[in-house]
Design a protein around this nucleic acid. Structure first.
Lengths: 354, 354
DNA sequence: CCATGCGGGACTTTTTTGGACCCATTTTTT
DNA sequence: AAAAAATGGGTCCAAAAAAGTCCCGCATGG
């Protein structure tokens, strides 16, 4: 057996380190986002016994990382600094850095960022992903840029976690797509507005009337204001979007059983902008609506930031990110590990339903 | 509280890490040097219960770091690699690296190396120090060099731990000093011979007859062979020596109680080459004998490697190393911490007898 | 050939852990 | 203003894990 990096030594000689580390890191992270929070809700959140959690809290309090007062548990300034600063070393210690490298060459993208944890079992991972993506987003911003953002909880997290502060001037934010009767699209508008507020930028929304017939779209498109926004969307320089799994998207738009079966037959695994992709990254179906055209996007866009988390999103991420030249992927550890499991088992093809 | 380096985060969030780490590291290190060794002698060595030690052994075995067979416990190849490779990261994790930096500027020397552990409670630390010093020594070697080495267990360890292998040609090894009726000087000769053998180099010894009168020294010095060796010693380019505490040296040479009292009165704290130094680094007494002259040494020598370990050697090290431009100091964690304790308590003066 | 020391297992005692409460107090809600 | 809920802290007790002790079969080395 050949020993690798320095960090691996630690895991060999103190194998209980990762467990201790992630347990306490998760704890601190949760408190960071939920402070002040009581012992009982915390224990319930992590499904731990009350005494077990109390012991951890006592330990961390003795380390000066948190204070426990009548109104609940909060982080001290040291604790806050730790939670925000430890991530890089934690990542390399947990092997997430090497995970990132493997993803980078597997998906052939320019940059990837794996956030520790699994969004499906720890909701703060969503905020962490949002924070990571927001940080990247800020780096991409330039004056007079048009920024398109889509809907979904992931994108909402990006907007939420973006720190309010100075930003390049003249930026305009638009939703990436206006759909028909979709809650998600409604959120896209809200998210765009919120993002613009954080960036102190202007924004334009794309409101389409509910339950519009597909043929009526042609008429709506002739509207000057709609046309203008559509042009803005398609000349966006930065695009932020999440990724949906095909089945969830179908269920969410109240599809009939036949429609769902049809989607499955076509091999749809992922959805983005109302477009359904199969495992090979080909479009196999679309939800009627207006917004981004993929061809235009590939021509004009400068940065595409994809945010997605959770093991069940793995196939969709492979399908979409692996087959399009996206700039940057922010995902969680759960999705990352699952992606590599799938890739190592059957090279980017959908298989092993777990 | 301001958080410092990355490593410190780990110690904050997993405060039990150092304990686990050093316990297992010491264990592996001991096995490394004593393999194959049984469970019971190991438990006795570390003063642990048999069951406690067994648990650690089981854990390390499951990690593939050691094998336990009928004839005892040994390290696997992974274990050996780990013990020899983990030292740097271990040192920075235990704060030894910052200890080194503080020593560097306190003693105003060029290079310092702190070996984890305390020689007084763990004898393998002596071998580790020897190995560290031997490594440095190898770096210093050049062809046609004269190498002087003194006596003592520390220097013996250096010679013992030096790996047999190719070395620059034409090197000659001499003992740094020939004393009168000293066991230590006898060792110096042996150590020089052993070192030369490891380096495949020539060596010259300085044998002086026992219990020679001080006045007889003058006569002996006129001997051609003795003179020749003395010249070699005083033109040595590399010098390796240990450090003795004044009281131990006095006791070891069977000094009378009056002599010991006299030494204490003069403020002697450390000894090297038969010269006694007070806390200010001044020579206050000397054991009759032949060998290195300090003045000559300072003029010709290129590298001086000092090896010393143990908390009780701290004062002596401060006295001697802190007041002479020695090149390199190899010491153990015990001595290092004690030195800084003393220095912080009373700035390089002898105080706080613990 | 025997004595010594080895690892491994079994048994018992001790310590630690973990779960379920209750309590006084503060904060929030009504 | 009063009641309701949530806070941290403390206690009791069962369960589990840890640790000390002893014994056994076996290889090795004198």
């Amino acid at each position: 057996m050949i020993l690798g990096l320095q960090k691996d030594y630690l895991n060999l000689i103190v194998p209980e380190l990762p467990e201790l580390l992630v347990k306490r890191y998760q704890l601190l992270r949760k408190i960071y986002y939920s402070a002040p929070i009581g012992r009982r809700p915390l224990a319930a959140y992590f499904q731990l016994g009350e005494k077990v959690l109390r012991k951890e809290i006592d330990l961390l309090r003795e380390q000066g990382l948190l204070t426990v007062e009548q109104q609940g548990i909060s982080l001290t300034s040291s604790g806050k600094i730790l939670v925000t600063s430890i991530t890089p070393s934690l990542k390399s210690l947990l092997g997430l850095t090497s995970l990132e490298e493997r993803l980078l060459q597997l998906l052939k993208i320019k940059r990837v960022m794996v956030v520790p944890g699994n969004i499906e079992t720890d909701e703060v991972v969503l905020w962490e992903m949002g924070r990571a993506a927001a940080k990247i987003l800020k780096e991409c911003l330039e004056p007079e840029m048009i920024l398109a953002i889509s809907g979904g909880t992931s994108c909402a997290a990006v907007a939420d976690m973006l720190p309010e502060g100075p930003a390049p001037s003249g930026i305009e934010v638009v939703p990436a797509r206006g759909g028909l009767g979709e809650v998600v699209d409604y959120q896209a508008n809200i998210i765009a507005a919120r993002l613009a507020q954080k960036l102190k930028a202007r924004y334009r929304l794309l409101h389409l009337p509910d339950s519009l017939g597909a043929e009526a779209l042609q008429i709506v498109m002739r509207d000057e204001k709609i046309k203008e926004i559509l042009e803005m969307i398609n000349s966006a320089k930065v695009l932020v979007h999440g990724i949906g799994t095909a089945d969830e998207m179908a269920r969410c738009r109240n599809a009939t059983p036949e429609e769902i079966e049809k989607l499955a037959y076509k091999g749809a695994v992922g959805e983005v902008f109302g477009l359904f992709f199969n495992a090979q990254g080909e479009i196999v179906d679309r939800i009627p609506g207006l917004g981004l055209y993929l061809e235009d996007m590939n021509r004009h866009v400068k940065h595409v930031i994809v945010v997605a988390g959770g093991r069940r999103k793995a196939e969709a991420i492979i399908s979409i990110v692996g087959n399009h030249p996206h700039d940057l992927l922010v995902l969680d550890e759960g999705a990352a590990r699952r992606i590599l499991e799938i890739a190592e088992g059957g090279e980017a093809t959908v298989s092993s339903g777990e």
